[in-house]
């Protein structure tokens, strides 16, 4: 639980769920795991199951939150286009939190990668031992291509770092 919770947290947050709701969603996923323990046949499929459940619960939470926000919004200038505030898919754009230039450089480099590379590398970095089946389930990428995609994404990231002369280097 201690190992997988950060992975679940960031997976839920990446779907645009706010921090308070994300806390609840992560708990719900763990409770659901215990309730459904009998139906999960392969032990190594647990992480995959957790990530899929977390994603579904997140979508549900985001949908509810939008409905709620719509219900509460009674501003006269509310347009017919609906959804007043879309949850941001990037929960934390404030890189100022990072105190080291080295970290900021790395994060900037990461943000220049294609979206799926960013998602994949974040997932791989948070998973204790890269579990391709689980990552495949969470990203929708075929299991067979995850290893090579990871290689491609890492190679691109390192190229960007080299080119933009970022200050990241392995310590």
């Amino acid at each position: 639980m201690r190992e997988a919770t950060p992975l679940l947290w960031h997976t839920v947050r990446a779907q645009g769920v706010d921090r308070e709701q994300a806390d609840d969603v992560v708990q719900t996923v763990w409770v659901a795991l215990v309730r459904n323990a009998m139906t999960i046949k392969e032990p190594h499929a647990v992480l995959k199951w957790l990530l899929i459940t977390a994603k579904r619960a997140s979508w549900e939470a985001v949908r509810k939150q939008r409905d709620e926000a719509r219900r509460r919004t009674e501003l006269p200038d509310d347009t017919d286009e609906g959804v007043p505030t879309l949850p941001s898919s990037d929960p934390t754009p404030d890189v100022e939190v990072l105190t080291h230039e080295r970290d900021r450089g790395l994060w900037r480099a990461l943000s220049r990668l294609p979206e799926r590379c960013q998602t994949l590398l974040k997932l791989v970095s948070l998973a204790d031992r890269p579990d391709y089946k689980a990552i495949s389930a969470a990203t929708g990428m075929p299991v067979g291509s995850i290893g090579s995609t990871r290689g491609r994404c890492l190679a691109k990231l390192r190229d960007i770092i080299d080119v933009q002369g970022e200050s990241w280097e392995a310590s």
């Binding site: 806390d23 934390t92 790395l106 994060w107 974040k122 890492l154």
Partner: peptide
């Protein structure tokens, strides 16, 4: 690199205490 990414993700959006 991967270890740094994990650390930065945690710094930017920390898992809440006690979760």
């Amino acid at each position: 690199l991967l270890a740094d990414l994990a650390r930065i993700a945690q710094a930017l959006d920390p898992v809440p205490d006690g979760l």
